[in-house]
Amino acid sequence: MSEHDHHDEGNGVSRRKVLECMTWAGTGLLWTVTGGIPHTVGMVGSAEAAEAQAKGMTFLQISDSHVGFDKPANPNANGTLEEAINKVKAMQVKPSFMIHTGDITHLSKVQEFDTADSIISQSKLDVHYVPGEHDFIDEEVKLYKERYGKGTKGAGWYSFDAGGVHFVGLVNVVDLKAGGLGNLGNEQLEWLENDLKGRSKSTPVVLFAHIPLWTVYPQWGWGTEDGARALEYVKGFGSVTVLNGHIHQVMQKVEGNVTFHTARSTAFPQPAPGTAPSPGPMKVEDAKLRTMLGVASINFKQNNQPLAIIDTPLVG
């Protein structure tokens, strides 16, 4: 599979800008669909986002809210989630819906799930969740599924259609193997293969899951053991977008017809791969924190323009 960066070509966002963005964590990206190809149109509230929203279907991505987290890297993670949701509420044109790519809570406590619901529901948007490993650590491992698992299969995977796009929410945080990475498992992969079978190859596909489906940095567990099998099933499709969280920073890669993107956290930043002793929460100056937290927004375009992903943080 050839690997190249669309942003080196044409009028897209420059490679430098993308690389700059990669070093930050974020609020929420706005994605838009004006036909074939999904692309992000910038952070909530940006001029690009407002313009793109007028043209096509847009949806939001938020991730890694870690409700309940109160350690030095961000003593008030609930507060920064609220700030992100306030940005969403202030949008002039409402996105169609929101996806949350996991780690809703920090410790899977009932109260954390309650608080997350009470804050996120203020957006008044439909929210499609997938779980992070932090959402499955209650004693009986039942709270996530009780709240968000209705109509899902297995540990919580599902698909739906919106705006002519086929969305698939995957779970790669269950049954992890010693020494390994994220894991989808046979049952889910077989389901995915069937779910995609028979769909027109011109249907844009969006896969979303917590841990990156591509290998970002295996030394820190940033990748999915059997992610390549999932990507095999989407090979024939003209437009595939893979949205993840988990690594608390923006990262993007384009490989053939597939665009991979990770979103910022709304709670705390994590270091770039290999730049710290561990992937744990990164303490930055108070003034800098909000430049590293965010939300993403996505836009699908009609023609064959290069995929542009621009991330803008909560502040800055």
Binding site: S108, H134, K177, A178, G180, L181, Q219, G221
Partner: peptide
């Protein structure tokens, strides 16, 4: 799940090699 400063103790009653891992961060 052990949060910050959380502990877990296990008494080994049989000889052998016990390989273990963190189920949240399997690396």
């Amino acid at each position: 799940t052990m949060d910050t400063d959380g502990t877990f103790a296990f008494t080994f009653t049989a000889a052998g090699e016990y390989k273990y891992f963190c189920s949240l961060h399997p690396h």
